[in-house]
Design a protein around this nucleic acid. Structure first.
Lengths: 66, 66
DNA sequence: ACAAAATGTAAAATAAACTTTACTTTATGT
DNA sequence: ACATAAAGTAAAGTTTATTTTACATTTTGT
């Protein structure tokens, strides 16, 4: 799975720490998500989508590994 | 988090086993998701949304616990 | 160039997702 | 009522998400 977190953060001018705090996870979790180290839970995806006011599908994408 | 998996399955006339097989997880995983035993990964949410041709947000919902 | 902030990374620990096996209960069709 | 399919459940095991701490590297502002 891939995502556009880094782009969205840039649009909203948020640091990884800012975003982490807003959705209630550690900064490393955000960093790891952006670096595709692991797949976040659906709760996190929904919270991030809500924060950025975009559908989950515009932020997270299945890829060939999925 | 809550979800409408059971309803969607009914609409599409799929058993838990059918759905499990289509998205590549065990039947118990589907059952546990429907019974809110745990939160699925974003990959699963995206696959289920794609299968049912509905946005993730129409199938999965944050609740007060999130 | 320097200081500070932001990002990247990594190891160890914990929590949670997911599988497998197996059994029980409930629903459906005849 | 009976047989069968579907759904519910549970324990044990494996894998993966997430946290915490800590440090290194890169970026940004002055």
């Amino acid at each position: 799975m891939k995502n556009k977190l880094k782009v969205e953060r840039a649009i909203h001018d948020l640091t990884q720490a800012d975003l982490a705090q807003k959705i209630g996870v550690s900064r490393q979790t955000i960093n790891a998500m952006e670096k595709n180290k692991y797949v976040p839970s659906t709760v996190l995806a929904l919270k991030i989508a809500r924060l950025f006011k975009k559908p989950v599908e515009e932020l997270f994408f299945l890829d060939e590994n999925d």
